[in-house]
Amino acid sequence: MAQQFTWDHTVEFVNDLKQAEQAFAEQGLTASYGGKHVGHGTENSLAYFNDNYLEFLTLYSRSEALAETLTRGQIFHEAGELLPEFEGFYRPALHVHGIEAAAERLRSKGVELGEIVPGNRTTANGEEIRWQLLWLQGDDHGLRYPFVIDWNADEATQLERYEQSGLLHRHAIGEVNTRRAIFEVPDPATISAHWADLFDLERTIGVDDEGRKYFDLAVGGGRDWRFVAGERNGITELQYTAPAGKSFDITIGQARYRSVEA
């Protein structure tokens, strides 16, 4: 049986968490300090959009981050390598139930994998949250692969955790939901077809309002990843649905966040 992959969250590398939080606050969105990845050299701020969230990630210790290996702590090591020069979207995460089965599927598709490793984060109030991570090694035509996370909980339980933690319903402009990620890549047809096969995602093809051909992958929750032709070779934009009359358009480094019509 195919493993189900759904879009969990997206990481942006930033140099200053407070500045990122302020940029969101100025347009009615809330991102709040999450905590330190103790022993891994990074810390984050988080913004929740229903069961999909955004993670701003920065360094608190470059030496700790660089001490991580790519097979066990890819995100930490690469934060140490890329910051402060690169400030922009890093890569998205896909959620699965049963990370061992996910690893078996990906390995059968010929992808080189790191180890399945435990993750942890200490929150501002001292609570430790734990999960499991799987790093896909290498890239696809220069595009970073997503990484895989297993929260050891189903969607309803995870959403209830967010509710109980007070992480939802915090945006000043009202309820905001993640709709789409835009990937600009040199060969959207080939890359989107490979990712559709790799992660067992439905793929559709269309033309956007600017006349660009796009390739959409359905990543759960009515959301999609849209691949269009471009030179950036990564995510350039996250799009959201917002209450009527409450639009926003924010740029942090090379990353753009904006509201679109539902």
Rank of each mutant, 00 (worst) to 15 (best):
N233T: 15
N125M: 14
T190L: 12
H141R: 15
D154A: 13
G230F: 13
S108P: 04
T30V: 15
L136M: 08
A242C: 09
G98F: 09
Y162R: 02
V38W: 05
T251P: 01
P84T: 13
D139L: 11
W151I: 08
G73N: 03
F248T: 01
E112M: 07
A31Y: 02
G206V: 05
R258E: 05
H77V: 08
S45I: 04
G126C: 05
D249G: 07
R258Y: 07
F49P: 03
F24L: 01
G221D: 07
P243G: 12
E237V: 10
N120Q: 15
Y48A: 02
A218R: 11
G253D: 02
E55Q: 03
E78S: 06
L201R: 03
W131Q: 14
A79I: 00
W135N: 08
K36F: 01
H169G: 05
L133C: 10
F86A: 06
A65F: 02
A156S: 10
A102L: 01
R62L: 03
E104Y: 07
H97D: 14
E202W: 08
F89L: 05
R161L: 10
A242D: 13
E55P: 03
A31P: 03
G220F: 00
N233G: 12
Y162E: 02
R179A: 11
Q74T: 11
L136H: 08
T123R: 15
Q4K: 14
G211T: 08
Q3H: 12
E127C: 06
K246W: 07
L59M: 12
D154Q: 06
A67R: 06
E160Y: 04
H141L: 14
L143V: 12
S259F: 03
E112F: 01
T30C: 10
A103Q: 03
Q132I: 07
V14C: 04
V11W: 04
Y48F: 09
F49T: 03
Y240I: 06
Q27F: 04
I235L: 15
A262S: 11
W225S: 00
Y214A: 13
G73I: 00
Y162S: 02
E21F: 07
Y53I: 09
T236I: 14
T58R: 06
I75A: 14
G166N: 13
Y60E: 07
F89A: 02
L82H: 15
F56T: 01
E163F: 12
L83F: 12
R161D: 11
G98H: 08
A153L: 11
V117L: 09
E100D: 11
A172P: 05
D139V: 07
W7Y: 10
L106Q: 00
T241D: 13
G166V: 04
E237Q: 12
G80L: 03
F13W: 05
R203S: 15
G222R: 01
D187R: 01
R144L: 15
L201F: 02
Y90C: 10
D140V: 10
V148W: 02
P92G: 05
G34R: 00
N15F: 08
L94P: 00
V38N: 07
A156W: 04
E127D: 14
I99Q: 01
Q254F: 11
V11D: 01
E184W: 15
E237T: 12
K109S: 03
L82G: 06
G126P: 03
G220M: 07
G211E: 05
R226A: 14
W225V: 05
D216F: 08
